[in-house]
Each structure stands twice: as structure tokens, then as C-alpha cells.
Simulated scan of single mutants.
Amino acid sequence: MRSIRYRLMEFFIIFVAIPVSFALEFSIWFKMIIAITGFIYVVYVLLKIENNKFKITQQLNWKQFWIRTVLKLLAIALLTTIYMYLVDKENLFMVLINKPLMWIMILFIYSLFSVYPQELIYRTFFFQRYESLFRSNTLFMFTNAALFSLAHIFFKNTLVMILTFIGGILFALTFKKTKSTLLVSIEHAIYGCWLFTVGMGEMLGFPS
């Protein structure tokens, strides 16, 4: 399973064929079966082939991580608040103000059941399986972000594709620096929760 040919086939199926297929019209149940099967495969490879232990390393630089994340969040918060105020003022902080209990529930469910699996697949798995296949680190990071954006093609929304590409760059840089699924998942959850909070959740598939 470590051969280049096998990994390239695996790469295409998991990160191109499956995401593109989800943009097509067919049974949601069949899509769920494909997604769950793919995730089980990823976990199996990480555990049995890549020998991951899923332990939190003791050498994490939490102070540096929080400084970087908060600074990026402030920039994201400023830009998205201005955007919502100018483009969709009615939905600015709508869920937080009108449905605070649902807001809290969705943040928890999203962070635990959406963010972590995404980061396990698109950062932990992707980096361990394919980084060695790229001679250019820049191309590798760009490819990771582009494929992360492609994973959201089923929304059929250009702004979503742009936002997830930018997010993909940020998450790839964080994972490259920290090698921590935990830290990149926390960062991903923070930014995603903010987009839901500011009022951009509907286009990203959050209930409103």
C-alpha cells in the first residue's frame, strides 16, 4: 500500500473522484455510505499502515499557536463582519441573537463531528501519504488547499470555494508547522464557528 502507483490511485479516488461525485444528483444515503466507507479506510490506513498512535504530543507550543490563531481570527472577523454588513445585513449575527441555544448546539456538533474528521483526512492522512510525492513544498500546500476547496464543490457556491481554499492554506500551514491534528482542528473549528456566528452559516450548510 506504500507503492507510488497505489497511492496515486488512492489520491485520485479519495480527493478527486469522491468529492466531485458528491456534486452529482444521486441518493443521499448512497453518498453517506461512500463517505463513511472512505473515512473508515482513512482511519484504517492511519492506524495499520502509517502506524499512528493518536496521542497528543507534549511538545506543543500552545502560546504561539493561540497568538497566531487569535491574530488571524481578528482579521477574519473584521473582513467577514464588513462583508456581511454590506452584502447581507439582515443575517448579521442572526442565529446568535435569535437562536442562541441552537447556536451553541451547532457549534459543538460541527466542531466534533465535522471539523475533526476533515482534518484527519485532509491534513493528517494527506500529509503522511502524499507529501513525499511532491518535490515542491509550495505546490504540495497549494494542492492540499485546492483539494480541500474541491471537497466543498457540492455547495455549488463560488464564495464557499474561495473561503475554503483560503482556509485550506491556513490549515495546511498550521499542520506543516505543528504536525498536530488537535491544533489544526481547533483552528478550523474556531474559524468555522465564527463564520456561522457572523451569519455566513447558511451557505456553508449550517442550519439556520
Results as ranks from 00 to 15, higher is better:
residue 65 F to S: 07
residue 65 F to M: 08
residue 67 I to C: 00
residue 68 R to G: 01
residue 68 R to F: 02
residue 69 T to P: 01
residue 71 L to M: 10
residue 73 L to A: 00
residue 74 L to R: 02
residue 75 A to M: 07
residue 76 I to M: 08
residue 80 T to Q: 07
residue 82 I to V: 14
residue 83 Y to N: 00
residue 84 M to I: 13
residue 85 Y to C: 07
residue 87 V to S: 12
residue 87 V to W: 13
residue 89 K to G: 14
residue 90 E to L: 13
residue 91 N to S: 13
residue 91 N to C: 11
residue 95 V to S: 14
residue 95 V to M: 15
residue 97 I to S: 13
residue 98 N to D: 13
residue 98 N to R: 13
residue 99 K to H: 15
residue 99 K to L: 09
residue 101 L to K: 13
residue 101 L to H: 11
residue 101 L to V: 15
residue 103 W to D: 13
residue 103 W to F: 15
residue 103 W to V: 09
residue 103 W to G: 11
residue 105 M to I: 05
residue 110 Y to P: 05
residue 110 Y to Q: 15
residue 110 Y to D: 15
residue 112 L to F: 12
residue 115 V to Q: 06
residue 117 P to K: 04
residue 118 Q to R: 03
residue 120 L to W: 07
residue 120 L to E: 06
residue 121 I to R: 06
residue 121 I to Q: 07
residue 122 Y to F: 15
residue 122 Y to L: 10
residue 122 Y to P: 04
residue 124 T to I: 12
residue 125 F to R: 08
residue 126 F to K: 11
residue 127 F to I: 14
residue 127 F to M: 13
residue 128 Q to I: 07
residue 129 R to G: 07
residue 129 R to S: 14
residue 135 R to C: 03
residue 135 R to K: 14
residue 136 S to H: 01
residue 138 T to Q: 04
residue 138 T to P: 05
residue 138 T to R: 11
residue 141 M to L: 14
residue 141 M to K: 08
residue 145 A to L: 03
residue 146 A to Y: 04
residue 147 L to C: 00
residue 148 F to W: 05
residue 148 F to H: 09
residue 150 L to F: 06
residue 150 L to G: 02
residue 154 F to I: 09
residue 154 F to G: 00
residue 154 F to T: 12
residue 154 F to C: 01
residue 156 K to F: 12
residue 156 K to S: 12
residue 157 N to A: 02
residue 160 V to L: 03
residue 161 M to C: 09
residue 162 I to Q: 08
residue 162 I to N: 07
residue 163 L to Q: 10
residue 164 T to H: 11
residue 165 F to E: 02
residue 167 G to V: 00
residue 169 I to W: 05
residue 169 I to D: 02
residue 169 I to R: 06
residue 170 L to R: 05
residue 171 F to E: 03
residue 172 A to W: 01
residue 172 A to H: 05
residue 172 A to R: 02
residue 174 T to Y: 05
residue 174 T to M: 10
residue 176 K to E: 11
residue 176 K to W: 07
residue 178 T to H: 08
residue 178 T to E: 13
residue 178 T to N: 12
residue 179 K to Y: 08
residue 180 S to D: 01
residue 181 T to S: 14
residue 183 L to P: 04
